[in-house]
Design a protein around this nucleic acid. Sequence first.
DNA 1: GAGTTTGAAACT
DNA 2: CAGTTTCAAACTC
Length: 662
Amino acid sequence: MDVVPSELNSILPDEIMDTEAIVMEDSLPVASPTSVSMETEVPEIFSLCSTATSTQMTLALTTPTTTDSVPCTMNSGTQLLLTPSVSSSQCHTPAPAPKPTTLVAGGLQKLSAPFTLSANHQLILNKVGSSSGVDAKSHGTPLLKHEGQKLVVTTISKGGQPIVLTLPHTAAKPGTVVRTGDATVQPQQFKVVAIGGRTELKPVVGVQTVSTASQLGSSSPQTASQNQQLKTVQTVKPVQTVAVGGVGTSQFKTIFPLAATPSVQQIQVPGSRFHYVRLVTATTASGTAHNSSPSINSASSQPAKPLVVNTAPMRMSVPIVPAQTVKQVVPKPLNSTAQVVPTQTQQRLIMPATPLPQIQPNLTNLPPGTVLTSAPGVGNVGYAVLPAQYVTQLQQSSFVTLASSASYSTTTGIQTQARMPLNGTLSVSESTTRPRKPCNCTKSQCLKLYCDCFANGEFCSNCNCTNCFNNLEHESERLKAIKACLDRNPEAFKPKIGKGKEGESDRRHSKGCNCKRSGCLKNYCECYEAKIMCSSICKCVGCKNFEESPERKTLMHLADAAEVRVQQQTAAKTKLSSQISDLLTRTTPALPCGGGRLPYTFVTKEVAEATCDCLMEQAEQAELSSQPQAVAERVILEEFGRCLMRIISSAGKAKMDCSINC
DNA sequence: GAGTTTGAAACT
DNA sequence: CAGTTTCAAACTC
């Protein structure tokens, strides 16, 4: 079974091939958190076990703290449930225990399901009905045959190391987890790459097994499978379901099962904010897997509510290690809000329905049914590169839907359909929370690092650029551009502002600036723009952006003063607005018909004028009658009293009338 | 808003 | 690797 041609791997940046995130160790006891030696901050034990029945198997994700665990339950054929897990090695399904022969320590089971470890170190569990799979020995890889959901796990390691494997299965063949690779090797690092495809499965974590790998590497597939035992699976970090090396950023991994046939694998480039999505066509899986392939969505950082993922191709998102960087929108935990709604002809993932600040940008440019062509020269394998931000934006969109058409007839393309917010416009919140400015590129097609969007790993969205290729419609060009940038500078997409050396400022520019005329006190300077001081690695001339610089201090003071003024103005405006609002509230009848109006609200201009007229009339009469001033004043006051009485009487009458009428 | 300045990125 | 060109953002008027 051909999973991912090596030629495709060759296209991808080398970083993808790096394996640093997860250490795999063979001798760990089952589900023993304390014994885990992986490079984890908060180790989680992830156990995979199945029930004796064919209907359900459980993927239990546990952690010593139990706070971040997200157990997964995979229903045969149709659903994978992620449910909280407390214990570290228990199957969560209430089904009877598996056959004794497959039972291993901690309730885990041997792998009896077929799988394929491809030449490029991808482990595939296939829904292959027959046992005539690839000859494992001929490929130097083991093969297990299994009639369960197809599961693809890729190490992407050039070294080709162990992999992990998980798999659900039928009653006759209890779900199993397999580990491949040579167990005799030292603890190894490997990267679990996105799993996807029709039968997309999320590679949640690294996996540790107890099996001795020699069994796997040298024995026949069947033998290997019998000897394979799943021990533990670990995530690298609490919120992370896919271990990835390099400088991570707050990101999601997402699988876009965009077409019915091709599987999708997602790859995280260490240190890159791009998400590589690899489309894989399982040539041997055949269409039989279509309706029974489960999708596994890996654990999120949040305590998990059950997450039901349907078998239909869908998009899955997995949060990865949050990083130091910053410009990115904090990914929305996937925990409980994502749902998958399968349809006959389309697979839809309805994203969290909560009000979301970010909208996927360039899907606005995608007409429904946009086809993403396969990668040139790679046969029926297509791929796409998605920036993390984009993924995040997608996830945060209330209405984003990526769908694949079941009627899609070829295996060389991906059909995507984007559904935008109903109003088709960005919300206020989204516009205000947008982390970057729109670009204005005109000549670079937004495919060079001149473009901030591209440099930040984002698709252009609501930009003012012309002839923009930084979108899904030009994915192939975009991919080439990314590769070109990475060829020039492997760290091109890594954050420029990183940690400084010990003793230095916490943050400093990774390359330093080269300013010559700005004194590093204008935003031309990347250091100044990032609000950090120049460091020893800067090559700037006439730098004034250092700690004791009087110019810098002056600027800082001015900036502070300006900020204070802005704050004061804001506060004043807020206060005034509040007062006006309060005044309006007070002068607005609390009840219709004036029933609850305050007394003074009855003294309108007309009433006041009428009252004055009455008083003036009394004054004139007193004057005409030559009354003493004291008498005149008394008459006027008496008239004023009567006026007040009339006003009060009228108010009361109005209130009564209102009460009657209402 | 048009024109200028600036420095990173790209190119040679 | 250095010099030059291209580019888009920052800035000025």
